[in-house]
Design a protein around this nucleic acid. Structure first.
Lengths: 148, 148
DNA sequence: GCTTGCGCTGGAGTCCACTCCAGCGGTTAG
DNA sequence: CTAACCGCTGGAGTGGACTCCAGCGCAAGC
């Protein structure tokens, strides 16, 4: 039996594979207070249970949404304070929700920008033209069609 | 007449404001080859015309989509090669399109994760419960409702 | 009993993408 | 004329987020 699963908790390697974070990063997150202290097995090794994995999922959502490490840490500290910080935690998450939505909007624009450019190149290649709209010679046209 | 507009080209400050990049970053992008050489006015200052602004827009789309500076530079170098690199440039953009779409998918998941958590806190606050599902005392409930 | 493989800790090192000068020049306002 | 602004260049410095050891322990396989 490997570290993949042992009575419902996962070893650090398995978690790294599932999350896309590196083993070093997982340990570093913990040291830096982005995760509450992870429980250990009898051999002193980290065992991530469902609660830890769920928390990690939230941390990843925050980080990917562009929240700096320091702010995630602040959130985690609040989590340790118990019920009294619920309102503040919720505010922070609401700000993050707004940030994610802004990012989505920008990303959608960026996608359009890139797609437009792709269509433009496709058109030039199809018609054998250069960027100035002049026809290119056959040798160049062949190169033009050559993908990377 | 400020630098905002002068026969259809913009000064560096105006461009910085429009793009959200800093003046230093704009100059640095150029030095690092993320932008083709920007034209200068008679006083030696940068003047960004529509072509430059369009290019900059694409560069921003690539960067925000997570493309590293080195790869953007490679794209810009290809652009200088003319029509022969159209195919390769298109491939690069297609890879970027895929990257943006992956990012969109992840971001949508992250949004869900955050929204779920917000709803969870809202529920605990509404019902005056702590994380373990136990009722909290009135003093704590008041704190709980307190936003940041 | 060895060796191989994983994981642990604490600390140092690296990489990327900017960001910040110092020292200079041209233009505009008082 | 002088001062206040911009912007220019080349180079140095910074901050954030990892990433990479060295040196150790434990458990399994040969």
């Amino acid at each position: 039996m490997t570290s993949t699963t042992e009575h419902g908790s996962a070893g650090i390697r398995a978690v790294a594979e599932r999350t896309g974070l590196s083993v070093d990063t997982l340990r570093w997150y913990e040291r830096e207070g982005l995760l509450p202290r992870v429980e250990r097995g009898p051999d002193g090794r980290r065992r991530y249970d469902d609660a830890a994995l769920g928390f990690l999922r939230l941390v990843q959502a925050l980080r990917r949404g562009g929240m700096p490490v320091a702010e995630v840490r602040a959130f985690v500290r609040m989590s340790a304070e118990g019920a009294a910080s619920h309102g503040r935690r919720m505010s922070l998450l609401e700000r993050q929700r707004a940030a994610i939505r802004r990012q989505q909007a920008r990303l959608a624009e960026d996608l359009l920008t890139v797609e437009e450019k792709i269509a433009h190149y496709q058109d030039l290649i199809d018609r054998g033209l250069d960027c100035g709209g002049e026809p290119v010679d056959e040798a160049t046209a062949a190169l033009q069609r050559r993908r990377c």
